[in-house]
């Protein structure tokens, strides 16, 4: 199976230095769970320094499309993937260090006419020309989707952690450099300024209330008007509790 992992130039979340994005390294690991695929990394950008470290974490080969800083990587990636035709294209859920909108895999899938499945935490082969993709849903639930190949799959941070860094593998890995495509970014210019953390808005803390009222709002029941059973027989209490939980729909069995 031919698998391509899209690698973006990331910034380290703490130091801000160039490094591969964590979720894309997790994508490399997911690719390894598919047996022994023919694995390639693909990066479009002005420099490959940031993504070269991925060679030490399970990636044998990197294809670098050299483009100018202001170029949109999409056109070059689409052209390269259209000629290469991998069975599976893995990308991160969201880059960290570029535009970080998570839009590129979707635009890519649209341009290549491929289906896209988001937020994978596991990928398993499912017979000829299909894979099972396990998606992460909120509250720890999962969704197992069977999708026909070729397809684009984005990887969720809840996927297994990346393979450990191996220096010898990093030396052994090869980087192939090709000229990318010049394509100016479309869209209006956006005003940029240093990031400022904003407070989360909480609806309940009523503006004109005293501190005691605010604490009450934070700890009081939203529904109110509960039922009270004083000293019931244990069996009766158990029946009441089970009936109540069933009514709320939290008891599945």
């Amino acid at each position: 199976m031919k698998v391509t992992v899209l690698l973006s130039a990331g910034l380290h979340p703490v130091s801000g230095r160039p490094c591969p994005a964590a979720v894309e390294l997790q994508a490399i690991r997911l690719a390894h769970t598919l047996g022994t695929p023919e694995l390639t990394g693909l990066h479009a950008g002005p420099a490959a320094d940031a993504v070269r470290d991925a060679l030490g974490q399970g990636l044998p080969r990197l294809l670098w499309l050299e483009t100018a800083v202001e170029d949109d990587p999409l056109a070059g990636l689409v052209a390269a993937l259209a000629t290469d035709r991998p069975d599976l294209i893995l990308a991160g859920r969201q880059a960290q260090g570029a535009d970080d909108s998570g839009l590129l895999p979707y635009a890519l899938a649209k341009a290549l006419g491929l289906p896209i499945i988001a937020d994978a935490v596991a990928i398993e082969p499912a017979g000829e020309g299909a894979v099972h993709v396990v998606q992460a849903l909120p509250r720890g639930a999962r969704r197992r989707v069977t999708v026909r190949l070729p397809a684009v799959v984005t990887v969720h941070p809840a996927a297994p952690t990346a393979l450990p860094f191996a220096f010898a593998a990093a030396r052994r890995g090869t980087v192939e450099r090709r000229a990318g495509q010049a394509a100016l970014r479309s869209g209006a210019a956006i005003d940029e300024r240093p990031y400022r953390k904003r407070p989360k808005l909480i609806a309940k803390a009523a503006a004109g209330a005293s501190a005691a009222d605010r604490l009450k709002a934070a700890t009081e029941s939203a529904a109110g008007g509960g039922r009270l059973l004083v000293d019931p027989a244990p069996d009766e209490a158990a029946r009441e509790i089970i009936a109540h939980l069933r009514e709320l729909g939290v008891l599945r069995r």
């Binding site: 700890t219 009081e220 029941s221 529904a223 509960g226 039922r227 009270l228 059973l229 004083v230 000293d231 019931p232 244990p234 069996d235 209490a237 158990a238 029946r239 009441e240 509790i241 089970i242 109540h244 069995r253």
Partner: peptide, 28 residues
């Protein structure tokens, strides 16, 4: 906690827990 609850039961937890287990087992 009794005031906060939608269903509040004033009883000994050590007696309610086995009863709950028994009721759930009986249902299955």
């Amino acid at each position: 906690m009794i005031e906060r609850a939608g269903l509040a039961i004033v009883a000994d937890a050590q007696k309610v827990m086995p009863a709950l287990l028994a009721a759930l087992e009986c249902e299955t």
